[in-house]
Amino acid sequence: MTHVATHSVRSVIRALGRLWLVPVTLVVWEIATRSAAQPFFPPPSAILARMHEIWFSGPASHLLLTDKALDDFGPSLARLFGGWLAAAALGVLIGTAIGCSSRLADYLDPLIELGRAVPPPLLVPFFLALLKLGTPAQLATIVFGVIWPILLNTIDGTRGVDRQHLETARIFGFSTAQRLRQVILPAAMPKIFAGLRLALSLALILLVIAEIFGGTGGIGYQLLYAQRSYLYPDMWGCLVMLGLLGYLLNSAFLLLERRVLAWHRGARQTN
């Protein structure tokens, strides 16, 4: 027991040793903003107090989340994941087809090159005009914007399957479905996951643009609303919240990746 205790104490100390610059930065920031007394830069304590007040002072039964928090985060997260998942499904499907057929790749190559080169925010006004204000236009923006890294990585991954793995599958007479499910997709999975992770952070960016530019609710809309209403601590609160969200999404995805691709890490370490 004591051994475990000293061990955990030691790891806490080590973590503090790694993170020491974070509290230092916060303190310096607090002092600097207080002495400058500039409205655009509220002190971190004021930001945190405001965040607590708007979002995290709810009942314990709702994990302390207020109704406003649920209203702000819920739809944003739903759009984010909805768009990302739709793009993932489409990207992997089309990417696998292209990766397995060099003929199809030849036909579609110029369109893909053009599509991935269009800066996705430029299409926000177009989707808004086409689909009206609100969720459909935001989903379309996210799907169109984030499909490219998924598509390109899937093509790359399915094309890069080891020739001997494919030959083994042929020798043992795998059916097409077996070859796809048991050989090609698993082999391409590390690349696909890299694309999915890029796409996830891009999806958050496009969500914010779509909500700021043509939103009626959600955290990006709140950010703009706070800025327009001179509620600077609220605006900073939204920024901090978005940073947290980005951090959590990335960490959660890495955790998932580590589980799903355990074989890949192992295989790489031994080679």
């Binding site: 001997q164 050989v183 698993p186 999975m189 074989w263």
Partner: peptide, 21 residues
């Protein structure tokens, strides 16, 4: 075409076994 009653053992086992299984 590929006969259905034939198996191969390759030299390079690391590229013949599927590392995800």
């Amino acid at each position: 075409q590929i006969p259905d009653n034939l198996a191969i053992v390759f030299q390079d086992y690391s590229r013949s076994l599927f590392p995800w299984m």
